[in-house]
Design a protein around this nucleic acid. Structure first.
Lengths: 168, 168
DNA sequence: ATTATTTTTCAGTAATTATTGAAAATTCGA
DNA sequence: TCGAATTTTCAATAATTACTGAAAAATAAT
């Protein structure tokens, strides 16, 4: 398999994977492209390589920067902005986990706290089942929060060696 | 807050959360409804409670069954089918992890194996960066696979107590 | 075997989400 | 300060994804 073909395959699959994870296809493709690009790229490079419009590149790059997955790079004596992606997949993963926790887990847990204040007789099975579900989610969320916190703070080699020693 | 209002809130938020995770809103809502319902429901119950069509209920229920999150229940002397969801959130989570691993991680790793056979000079920086990215993903995937395997096989109390002891 | 009930399918349509491209804003060199 | 280069915005449109509802298929009671 030729490099150009392999790159296409990778970009396209990474994009499809994104859609299964609530990430838009193009954003995942831009990320994929930057991950396999040795040097930083401009918006025009990305437009050309992925065949997408300037506006599209711009918006998705901005989102990727918000997610902390892509950085602007200033190149000496160049007017244009260049972009580059973190290539260490462990860092990519922990960054995504950190963001998703902040954007999704934290607000969800806040809501669960509110919902657990629902009024009504706890002997009523409707109320009981509701409260049990909410409380299960709260407990689960608290544990997940703890574990993800440690995961994100630790570095790869420590985490994997310790965890795997334990789990094997 | 009244139970009816809290239920609505929960269903709606669980649905919105689904969309952030590549799950369609309605499927997540049906799941939410079943989780907080003490007794099994029929397709008509779900249609009524979520205001959606029969076809929609049918398709999403089927998907939920495929994911192993919902079961058909036969009720003595009833013609209609009833449906119920697993209410233990730990089991829900491990089931989802198991399925996503099978559907997404496994095929992705198979592809990485293929892509790592790309031809070309490893001194070429395009080739080099590509191969490094692929190999990073492969290593990461293998570790994730091991850990998720243990997570799924273990039961909640064992996993959480062991993991938290280690990580705190 | 006939009929009533229930489930499933799927073509058509609706709703949502993503993309374009051109205009506006910004940036920076001269 | 002006003007060219570059980035950003966003209304219009395209593409995708989800939903409906009625017809077909399946199921089971009589």
């Amino acid at each position: 398999m030729k490099l150009s073909e392999a790159r296409q395959q990778f970009i396209s699959t990474w994009g499809a994977m994104g859609t299964h994870w609530g990430i838009n296809r193009t954003m995942a493709q831009v990320h994929a492209l930057l991950m396999i690009s040795p040097d930083p790229l401009t918006q025009d490079d990305i437009m050309a390589q992925l065949n997408i419009s300037r506006g599209n590149v711009n918006m998705n790059i901005r989102d990727l920067i918000d997610w902390g997955l892509v950085d602007r790079v200033l190149i000496q004596g160049e007017r244009k902005e260049y972009f580059t992606a973190e290539k260490d997949i462990w860092k990519v993963a922990t960054q995504i986990i950190k963001e998703r926790k902040r954007r999704e887990l934290d607000p969800m847990m806040k809501l669960m706290d509110q919902l657990s204040k629902v009024e009504g007789d706890k002997k009523d099975k409707e109320v009981k089942t509701f409260l049990e579900t909410i409380s299960g989610i709260k407990k689960f969320g608290a544990h997940a929060d703890d574990m993800l916190g440690v995961l994100v703070k630790s570095d790869e080699s420590w985490f994997l060696s310790t965890a795997l020693k334990l789990f094997k």
